[in-house]
């Protein structure tokens, strides 16, 4: 296994479509729930331990070798918002394109064929990590980090927040990112039924509101 492969996969410039998504930060900014770096930290922390943990565990399970189609179904059950299901599949399809160009494998081809409109992104990412020779905890780390780096980058654009402050928020979350990744990888060892389903009511509700906005900067 190559540690550098993890850097490639976790790089914000990995061309898999994430840059167009705010992870729920855009509606939170508009509704005044994120106004500064402290709010951003609270938002990221909440997202990390809910949607982030759930997604990280799905990725870890895929990296562990559990059936990606069963995981895709488990992801659906954990995503009551149709807007967020559509986003997850759209990003999954984009991740799949990048993954097949980067680390081609029959496993990725099989999932792409079974889900031509995209599987849930964490499942695709986990399978990509597996193909790249990475382990379940690597995949979980990657997803956990994305869960907070997406909103942080978006808030820099939305609020003109000082990028140093936004990056400091991410750095201070590092120990919790490690915890979430370890927790997700541990759950993945115990099979699909043991995967966490932590959810965040406001993220689900505001995702639906945001999807209906006629004018927005971010796709989600």
């Amino acid at each position: 296994m190559s540690r550098a492969a993890l850097l490639v996969l976790a790089d914000g410039r990995f061309p898999a479509g994430g840059h167009a998504h705010s992870g729920g930060a855009e509606p939170a900014v508009t509704q005044g729930r994120i106004r500064d770096a402290d709010d951003l930290a609270a938002f990221c922390r909440g997202r990390l331990h809910t949607a982030g943990l759930t997604a990280a565990a799905l990725a870890a399970a895929a990296a562990h070798g559990l059936d990606p189609l069963a995981l895709d179904e488990a992801a659906d059950a954990r995503t009551p918002s149709p807007a967020l299901r559509a986003t997850a599949r759209k990003l999954g399809r984009q991740m799949m394109r990048a993954a097949r160009a980067t680390w081609p494998s029959p496993e990725l081809d099989a999932l792409a064929t079974a889900r031509p409109r995209g599987a849930h992104q964490p499942v695709v990412l986990g399978l990509t990590a597996r193909t790249a020779g990475l382990g379940p905890e690597d995949a979980a780390h990657c997803v956990a980090y994305e869960t907070v780096s997406g909103p942080a980058t978006a808030v820099v654009r939305l609020l003109s927040l000082d990028p140093f402050h936004a990056t400091a928020v991410l750095a201070r979350l590092a120990p919790e990112l490690d915890e979430v990744a370890a927790q997700a990888a541990e759950a993945a060892r115990h099979g699909i039924d043991a995967l966490p389903a932590a959810s965040a009511p406001l993220l689900d509700i505001t995702a639906e509101a945001h999807a209906a906005w006629p004018v927005r900067l971010f796709a989600s």
Binding site: G24, A28, R33, I34, D39, A42, F43, C44, R45, G46, R47, L48, H49, T50, A51, L53, E176, A198, A200, P201, L202, L203
Partner: peptide, 12 residues
């Protein structure tokens, strides 16, 4: 509970 449960992503 894990951090952030009362914050802007979860319960606000």
């Amino acid at each position: 509970a894990p951090g952030g449960w009362d914050g802007p992503a979860v319960l606000g």
